[in-house]
Nucleic acid binder design. Sequence first.
DNA 1: AGAGAATACGAGCAATCACTCGTATTCGCA
DNA 2: TGCGAATACGAGTGATTGCTCGTATTCTCT
Lengths: 205, 205
Amino acid sequence: MESEEARPRRRQARGERRMSEILDAAAAVFAEQGYEKTTTNAVAAAAGISPGSLYQFFRSKEAVAQALADRFTVQMRAAHGEAFAPADLAAMDLDDLIDRVVDPLVAFNVANPGFKALFARPDMPPGLATAAGPIQSALLGRVEAILAVRAPGLSAPERTRSARVLVQIFQAMTPVVVAAPEDEREAEVRELKKVLRGYLAPLDG
Amino acid sequence: MESEEARPRRRQARGERRMSEILDAAAAVFAEQGYEKTTTNAVAAAAGISPGSLYQFFRSKEAVAQALADRFTVQMRAAHGEAFAPADLAAMDLDDLIDRVVDPLVAFNVANPGFKALFARPDMPPGLATAAGPIQSALLGRVEAILAVRAPGLSAPERTRSARVLVQIFQAMTPVVVAAPEDEREAEVRELKKVLRGYLAPLDG
DNA sequence: AGAGAATACGAGCAATCACTCGTATTCGCA
DNA sequence: TGCGAATACGAGTGATTGCTCGTATTCTCT
């Protein structure tokens, strides 16, 4: 056994560009049609290539989604910025803290409407869950870290549960924020923050 | 033009029973597989009948979902009970009020796991939205009525928005409650109520 | 009992879709 | 310049699936 399956084929610059174009197209079509209803031929057409060419770069429809997930993960981490210093956290006003965490996440979701079409679907295939996991984990870990500082009275399991609830609230209300017309978005975000604050305030030291 | 399309075929008792059995089967399969992945043949098999027989009673897969939605709507209204008298509402403790509204709804969702598989899917076909609408409207109206009594300071648009947020929170957290193992369900419900309470408390007179 | 309608069957049709394959073209590189 | 590899094509394939149709059985009602 020397070759195995792990020979990712040498790519040219042209190929890398094509892959990126395919992912752009996939994000757009996923966002508009949803994952299940999206046909691979439609993605290829949107990318301006033939069905066969798409499969030169991705082994399957799910592989496209997976790659898109990976790209989102990277972009998300970048958009979200670096973690806060605990000193900042402890000193910060609760409202400021919420603004600071929520605003960039909302901005990311508004800028990438395809994101939720991929990761908010109820039947996440195993491959995708693997890709979505890191995102979820990163968020949860971040929130838990914040809670550890702001609500030191919480036991570890309580902290985990509370973090899960907070993330869940955010993910539940984000679609509405994204779907809202430009001039109502701010109001929706305010509501989202109200909910988060209402849940956090009693925990906050 | 005398016949049109509106002749619903005379049913025998046997037929009504079959329809109910088919809906039972559909609810089970939808709950397990999700709507899209559910095949009509699978529903027929689960109901112990042939594919052809299913189509004696329902014109299409969507018609099955629609009928199931209608049935859920009726059951939900029944499960939820009658509206509160405003006097009760005004006097009641906020925690009691939340218990009183949330508990039956949670119970319904736990008892009917197929419910969310049908109505929580992101791509609701027009026919289904029509069926889901009344449910949503009923809930929203109910919550708005409560807010009108408990938070008289709110303007009408504010009241509408707050009601929407509350319903959204509930619907977002319900799947987790339903999916939770028996012995953790109560804790999940407590979290749900905490979130609702956190959002409501500042509004409550 | 007997007729007509309702119920039941299940093989199969037509359409859809993820994916393949044989072939043609273009690129990187010596 | 020439060669091997990467890229590109798009008609076609096999599998799936919602649904039909011809036919057989069972019910209701007189």
